[in-house]
Amino acid sequence: AELMTLTIVKGAQGFGFTIADSPTGQRVKQILDIQGCPGLCEGDLIVEINQQNVQNLSHTEVVDILKDCPIGSETSLIIHRG
């Protein structure tokens, strides 16, 4: 298992991935745009978004944080894999 830092840019259609609740937090459910989120894999656990720890937040709260990220700006994700 490892922590990885990824930088992704939000496009007009969003980030290009969906998230779902899991017992340990929000996991990447589906990658819709592989080019839009390079390095991200289905099943990755989202630990931080732009230096904000999201592991204890609800699904709705994490979705809102992602929605609030401006289109075209870089967003830093720390994910836990494995």
Rank of each mutant, 00 (worst) to 15 (best):
A1R: 15
A1W: 01
A1F: 01
E2D: 09
E2V: 08
E2T: 10
E2M: 12
L3M: 14
M4P: 08
M4F: 14
M4Q: 07
T5H: 05
T5P: 10
T5W: 03
T5F: 03
L6Y: 08
L6C: 14
L6I: 13
T7R: 09
T7M: 07
T7H: 12
I8K: 02
I8Q: 08
I8C: 12
I8M: 09
V9M: 13
K10N: 06
K10W: 01
K10A: 06
K10D: 00
G11V: 14
G11W: 03
A12K: 10
A12T: 11
A12Q: 10
Q13R: 11
G14V: 06
G14P: 10
F15R: 02
F15E: 05
F15C: 06
F15A: 04
F15D: 05
F15N: 04
G16L: 12
G16S: 11
F17W: 11
F17Y: 02
F17D: 00
T18H: 05
I19W: 03
I19S: 01
A20S: 13
A20C: 02
A20N: 04
D21L: 15
D21V: 08
D21N: 06
S22W: 09
S22G: 14
S22N: 01
P23F: 06
T24E: 13
T24H: 13
T24V: 08
G25F: 02
G25Q: 02
G25V: 01
Q26G: 10
Q26W: 06
Q26Y: 15
R27H: 07
V28Q: 00
V28T: 01
K29C: 07
K29L: 03
K29P: 00
K29M: 09
Q30S: 08
I31D: 02
I31H: 02
D33C: 07
D33E: 07
D33I: 02
I34L: 13
I34K: 12
Q35D: 15
Q35G: 14
Q35L: 06
Q35H: 15
G36W: 15
G36K: 05
C37V: 05
C37S: 13
C37A: 03
C37Q: 06
C41R: 11
C41T: 14
E42V: 09
E42G: 06
E42A: 07
G43D: 13
G43K: 15
G43M: 02
D44H: 00
D44R: 00
L45G: 07
L45E: 00
L45M: 15
L45V: 03
I46F: 15
V47R: 11
E48W: 04
E48L: 06
E48T: 03
E48S: 12
I49N: 01
I49R: 00
N50Q: 04
Q51C: 08
Q52R: 12
Q52F: 09
N53R: 09
N53F: 07
N53A: 07
N53G: 09
N53W: 03
V54T: 10
V54K: 00
V54R: 00
Q55F: 14
Q55N: 14
Q55K: 02
Q55L: 06
Q55P: 01
N56T: 11
N56R: 10
N56S: 09
N56M: 09
N56K: 10
L57D: 06
S58Q: 09
S58A: 12
S58M: 08
H59A: 07
H59P: 07
E61A: 04
E61K: 05
E61Q: 08
E61R: 12
V62G: 00
V62H: 01
V62L: 06
V63E: 11
V63M: 14
D64W: 10
I65R: 08
I65C: 09
I65T: 10
I65N: 02
L66G: 00
L66E: 01
K67R: 14
K67V: 06
K67F: 09
K67E: 10
K67G: 14
D68I: 02
D68V: 14
C69P: 01
C69E: 07
P70F: 08
I71A: 04
I71W: 04
G72N: 03
G72F: 02
S73A: 13
S73L: 06
S73R: 05
S73G: 15
E74K: 03
E74I: 03
E74R: 13
E74P: 15
T75M: 14
T75D: 07
T75Y: 04
T75V: 13
T75C: 02
S76W: 05
L77S: 01
L77D: 00
L77E: 00
I78L: 09
I79Y: 06
I79G: 01
I79W: 01
I79H: 01
H80W: 08
R81L: 01
R81W: 01
R81V: 02
G82F: 02
G82I: 01
G82R: 12
